[in-house]
């Protein structure tokens, strides 16, 4: 029976429009001339009862000069963007070394203290950043890493949530595939690299996308760990300063920052749904 679900579709359209509007507007505004945006942003903060800001849905004149400015003329934004990219890549690499292996050990091995370890990881996962940053800082101080890029990267490589996510997925793998590997004479390493990792592709893709989103939007960590090193800040922290002193190019910066995230999402969208659906998240 083919149903049309008019009401459902209507409600979903409303939700989708509300959700996408900020993204679309950012993209549209990035195509305005810098002077136009500067003027428009200048009309903010007007407390006159009779006046409103105009509602801008399209540029007066289509222009790419915002992008030209931040990409070619002035390298400040681009440098911060590269910082963000550097942190994200290094954190993801670190997590790639640590997290799948740990999830494998926690889901496929029997060793003393395993359940206690997993319990500890869950507890760590529950703790908010305000709490975990204190031990992080104590260690970073001891190692002399405060205000270096490693302060932002190293603690992030061990995010407990992804260990939990991968472990739950690996628990659900049928044990026959590993037994088959063992019968064929594969050791634990071979099973890991040739059986478990390929089978876990959806959840790994999902975790990569989630972790990318976290790193790309990182604010708290650089703000506390890099407080004395403004050159090393990622772009995510600096938007708030752009808004304080409008240069007319901030929307191009925002669009530039959204694009990689958009590609990551589009690339991994199937993995995100499959990965979550196939893991035993209970």
């Amino acid at each position: 029976m083919e149903k049309r679900h008019i009401a459902t579709r209507f409600a979903l359209t409303l939700v989708a429009v509300a959700v996408l509007l900020p993204l679309l507007l950012t993209a549209v505004y990035s195509l305005c001339a810098p002077s136009e945006i500067k003027e428009y942003m200048g009309t903010r903060g007007n407390y006159n009862q009779d006046q409103f800001m105009e509602i801008k849905l399209a540029p007066k004149q289509f222009s790419l000069s915002q992008f030209y400015k931040i990409l070619v003329e002035d390298e400040a934004v681009l440098r911060l963007f590269c910082n963000s990219a550097l942190y994200t890549v290094l954190v993801l690499l670190g997590q790639a070394v640590v997290i799948p292996a740990m999830a494998y050990a926690l889901s496929r091995f029997r060793f003393p203290g395993r359940d206690a370890l997993f319990f500890g990881i869950i507890m760590l996962m529950l703790l908010p950043f305000q709490v975990t940053m204190v031990p992080n800082v104590l260690t970073l101080k001891k190692l002399g890493l405060m205000n270096t890029i490693w302060a932002v990267i190293l603690p992030n490589c061990f995010t407990p949530f992804y260990i939990f996510l991968l472990r739950q997925y690996m628990l659900g793998l049928p044990k026959e595939i590993l037994e088959a590997g063992e019968i064929d004479g594969a050791g634990t390493f071979r099973c890991f690299f040739h059986i478990v990792l390929p089978v876990c592709k959806p959840i790994i893709g999902c975790a990569v996308a989630l972790s990318f989103a976290d790193c790309w939007n990182m604010v708290e960590q650089p703000l506390t760990y890099l407080a004395q090193n403004a050159d090393k800040m990622p772009l995510s922290v600096m938007f708030n300063q752009f808004s304080a002193s409008p240069t007319g190019t901030e929307f191009a910066g925002a669009t530039l920052y959204i694009l990689p995230a958009l590609f990551v999402y589009l690339y991994f969208q199937k993995d995100i749904l499959d990965g979550i659906q196939l893991s035993e998240l209970k």
Partner: peptide, 13 residues
């Protein structure tokens, strides 16, 4: 999609 977007970039809007 928004979960994967940097909210810092949306701030301006």
């Amino acid at each position: 999609l928004p979960y994967f977007m940097p909210s810092c970039a949306i701030l301006l809007i």
